[in-house]
Amino acid sequence: MKHNLHVVLIEPQIPYNTGNIGRLCVATNSKLHLVGKLGFSLTDKYLKRAGLDYWSYLDYETYKSWEDFYEKNKKGRFFLVEFPAYKFYTEVEYREGDYLIFGSEDEGIPEDIVNKYWENSITIPMFGPVRSLNLSNSVAIVVYEALRQIKRF
């Protein structure tokens, strides 16, 4: 199946967030990639509850590590959503099939990965004393901007 986008989560820790993101992926015909050690089981009741009854429709794949993920998807076009970053998420021209990469709720994307792909790092602007947004909210913001640009509405 051809997907609009690919959502990549590196070591997500909170099942509610991943469940919400899974539901978003089903709604947007995006594939979910789960990379590294997860902070929960894929059979977790909270994960399933947040994903409602849509989890069975989700196209997802798990990977042991970033290296495993990269080896299997290295031909993709990656955008790392992180703070700080090279540019705002609205300054990118997205294309069908892009990979939108997000880090864990507590650590973000590992620094060595961000440094390697710095020119493909993007951020969501924040004002005030907030240092980060909820992971599932961040995924929704960037996914819908990408879909708006590739005219998937």
Results as ranks from 00 to 15, higher is better:
M1A: 15
M1H: 15
K2E: 15
N4S: 14
N4W: 10
L5V: 02
H6N: 15
V8L: 06
L9Q: 01
P12T: 07
Q13A: 15
I14D: 08
N20M: 13
I21D: 08
L24G: 11
A27P: 08
A27H: 11
T28F: 03
S30N: 01
S30G: 07
K31W: 08
K31R: 15
H33L: 04
H33E: 06
V35H: 01
K37Y: 08
G39N: 05
S41N: 10
L42A: 04
Y46F: 13
Y46C: 05
R49Q: 10
R49A: 11
L52I: 14
D53Y: 06
D53F: 04
W55S: 00
S56Y: 13
D59V: 08
Y60F: 15
E61T: 12
E61C: 04
T62G: 04
Y63V: 00
E67M: 06
D68G: 09
E71K: 03
E71Y: 04
K74N: 14
K74H: 13
K74W: 05
G76A: 07
R77V: 08
F78T: 08
E82L: 02
E82C: 14
E82N: 00
F83A: 15
F83P: 03
Y86E: 07
K87S: 10
K87Q: 12
F88M: 12
F88S: 14
F88L: 12
Y89M: 07
Y89E: 10
E91T: 08
E93I: 13
R95K: 15
F102Y: 12
G103V: 05
G103L: 05
E105I: 08
G108V: 07
I109V: 11
P110M: 08
I113M: 05
I113W: 00
K116V: 02
K116Y: 02
K116I: 00
Y117H: 12
I122F: 08
T123F: 09
F127G: 03
F127M: 11
V130I: 15
S136R: 02
N137W: 01
S138F: 09
S138N: 00
V142P: 09
V143S: 13
Y144G: 04
Y144E: 02
E145S: 01
A146Q: 03
A146V: 04
L147D: 14
K151L: 12
R152C: 13
